[in-house]
Design a protein around this nucleic acid. Structure first.
Lengths: 334, 334
DNA sequence: TTGTAGGCGTTATCAT
DNA sequence: ATGATAACGCCTACAA
């Protein structure tokens, strides 16, 4: 069951290997007769060119690497789908590995990608972050990040503006006890969202209560336990702004359990606008990230870098609030 | 910014390339002195071995390919995560591509993996299915499938038993008008589940009403529209068994919209037991697939095939019913 | 139009 | 312990 190589075909056809190579790559100067003969033979013998060997000589693997924290968040899943789609379209294969939020593992994966000579790397939710700016000199591969404005090649959503809209929405509805459930694993985007949260409260003369800022982890379960903590406060909030939709839906489940109605007794806002946001009850008010666009910009930025294009720089994509049914005025104390 | 090769190190160290190669691969017969010197030099020069070149000579890429319909279904996402975890552990990299439910695209991807000389391929939710059994002779790479009992190298969940439990549960609760929302994209597992559905109904003297079998597509939206169709029937069902949890949650959202309470007015059963099943309202009664185990069996089967082990054959994993709050007795007609 | 030769970066088999 | 040399499968001048 040996792989058939260009030599085998050459032997079978009674020509030299280079003729076969040319015939197969539709080289201009070759007789149409042998060309079709070779093509037929190749087909018949089940020849599949070794991209390994080819890459070695052309110095191009036509592969990019994507390192992702975990594909179990639908937002991230959507993002990689969008990246992969464009990559395919542009003739690139995608090597994918998970970093499981572990910085060491992330570095390992990046190293492995380099070893495989991917043309470039996209890191989604990097735990190294600015580590790449130092690496930048020694590292021969372009690296593109998400949500890291301190790094030159980064695509972000406007977390500041997004979070601001969310919290302002809540304030305008009349809420004054507003909680924030953070994500300890997503420092960059989290700190932006937290910052807007604090600023909007301050701008509206609402003191920031540290007890209302809970560490979450961006998962359903994380949101669920964060909500329980919030409910155990002596002065529970009337609204909660969540790092992402997963967290928000986790919050929903704890509220259901505690028989607290949304939005009558508690308003909830998410972030991302994943598909589930319109299929939960009540439908989730959230900040939409342009997920497809983000994936496209990431891969296009990487391709631009690969092609040594000029003027590649950080991009910030707009966030848009989508008001649905999980937010409303605070309950009037009977 | 050229990549540094073994030759560069050799030059810098004043030794031959082969010595460098040996030093780096911790060959036994080499002086400890030069070994450390070479290692230091390599480190310092930022040397990363080209796995391309290495693979070419060792004839082993240490890579496997995973083709998946789409990573946007949490069940599938979970599955690939589990596969990847084991693959990493065993020193394999994972090349991943989506087939988008397109048979042609699936073949393309398989071809691309072959070209990259992956050691084997896992196809999740194949649209070709038995096509691989014919390919089996001509194709030099081991291929492992999910849910295809007609193919020798397949790991499946016991869809027959799983679906049977689900429908029997509904029947025992007293339901007689039970709908099934199918998945037109997942022929294999779908036909098994449909078959059990029909058998259980028949075994209980319940005529199968074709109007209660709806074509879905395994997505939230698909479940949502299927539910709307069901509700428009002159005789709507009192229970619905869904191809998967995504469909079921889509059904939930349509029922909410129509102000139909679950389970009081309508019982819903899913399949998969994704994490969302415990974070929706009401919590979803479903058939649990051993997702992690399935991923592990898939990759282990592939590795066994790669290593030419004997006695590799199809595996069927157990499905287990998890009763939660989305099922109950049918409404008593007032 | 086709063949020959060299090289891509490694490893492996000989010698030395 | 180390150095030549060949080979992996392919591409690409250069020569014929």
């Amino acid at each position: 069951m040996m792989e058939v190589s260009i030599k085998d075909i050459a032997k079978a056809a009674g020509v030299s290997p280079s003729t076969v190579s040319r015939a197969l790559s539709d080289h201009p100067r070759i007789s149409t007769e042998t060309k079709v003969r070779i093509h037929g033979l190749a087909e018949e013998m089940g020849y599949i060119p070794s991209l390994l060997a080819r890459s070695l000589v052309t110095r191009d693997t036509a592969t990019i690497g994507v390192v992702i924290t975990s594909v179990s968040d639908p937002f991230l899943a959507h993002l990689v789908t969008s990246i992969e789609e464009v990559a395919q379209e542009q003739g690139y294969s995608v090597l994918m590995s998970s970093s499981y939020l572990d910085p060491d593992r992330e570095l390992e994966v990046v190293g492995a990608f380099h070893g495989r000579r991917t043309r470039g790397i996209i890191v989604i939710g990097s735990q190294i972050d600015t580590g790449y700016v130092q690496m930048h000199d020694r590292f021969p591969l372009p690296v593109v990040l998400t949500n890291c404005r301190a790094y030159p090649y980064s695509v972000s959503t406007d977390n500041l503006a997004g979070a601001r809209q969310a919290v302002e929405h809540l304030v305008q509805l009349g809420h004054r006890k507003i909680a924030y459930i953070a994500n300890r694993h997503s420092r960059r985007s989290n700190s932006d969202r937290l910052q807007s949260y604090q600023q909007v409260l301050a701008a509206n003369g609402i003191p920031v209560d540290e007890d209302l800022i809970i560490e979450g982890d961006g998962t359903l379960r994380g949101g669920s336990v964060a909500a329980q903590i919030l409910l155990s406060r002596s002065q529970p909030p009337t609204a909660v702004f969540c790092f992402n939709d997963m967290t928000a839906i986790g919050v929903f489940s704890s509220l259901q359990q505690a028989r607290i109605r949304v939005p009558e007794e508690m308003s909830v806002v998410g972030f991302d606008d994943v598909e589930f946001a319109t299929h939960c009850h009540p439908r989730l008010t959230t900040i939409r990230q342009p997920t497809n666009l983000m994936g496209q910009r990431l891969i296009h930025m990487l391709l631009a870098l690969i092609q040594d294009q000029e003027g590649v720089g950080p991009e910030v994509l707009p966030a848009e609030m989508v008001i649905r049914e999980s937010t409303g005025p605070p309950p009037t104390p009977a």
